[in-house]
Amino acid sequence: MKFRNLIALVITAAFALIILQAFTITPAAGEITLNEFGKADINNRTAQLYLNKSVNTDNKKVIYQESKNLESGSANIVTSVVANYRSFDTLGEITVLFLAAAGIGVVLNLENSKKKKFAADDSSLILNTGIKLLFPLLLLAGTYIFVYGHLSPGGGFQGGAVIATAFLLKMLSDNKFEIKEISITLVESTAGISFVGLGLYGLVTRGSFLENFMATGTVGQLFSAGIIPLIYIAIAFKVGAELTNIVKNLIEA
């Protein structure tokens, strides 16, 4: 073992020990405590408000397919947090993703002296045929995931990632397959603008950015939850386009 590795090990171990001893501290009265595993006290957490959909109103009971016009109409509570209660965070998050994609574009397209171009072989028949079959199915699955994001597990990020995977597979299998840069940019910017546009419309009509300005409908139905599905569709297109762009850049470099 080299000297540096030893030092790294010692430092890491010291760090870990110091962090782990925090679990043994018995908190004084009134201090926030760390729950034991599996015993999280949901009733005393912010989560309770989200579960009851009662941050601003005082709705208590939410019943599947019955409750109407709730504060946030999404059956998937995580979605209601990501795309409604904390959708401003999500806007920041897709900005980070956009910045990373832009950064990769810049880094990989820098002038370099010894550019090697790989002449890739044609991929095998099995991969080719399988992906021809899978490609529409993957697109469909991705679409399902983000359209039903407010009803079932999933959402814009996951759906977008599945769609990007479909394009990745397509690029792997088919050497001649090429997406135009301009179409990716177009999809991405349209999606981004519509996200911000939805937020601004809420700002104008309801007085705060990204406020839900549509009727939330009945919990559990496809056409419900106000702007959450719209935001998720915008996110899905944006994430899909960005990830596809990243993959495209990495493959082409």
Binding site: A40, I42, R45, T46, A47, Y50, L51, N52, K53, K61, V62, I63, Y64, Q65, A75, N76, I77, V78, V81, L151, S152, P153, V219, G220
Partner: peptide
Amino acid sequence: PIINSVNPSNAAAFVDPI
């Protein structure tokens, strides 16, 4: 934390969504 036909109401036990 999803309200669906298995857990039709928010009275059921959910994990923390945040």
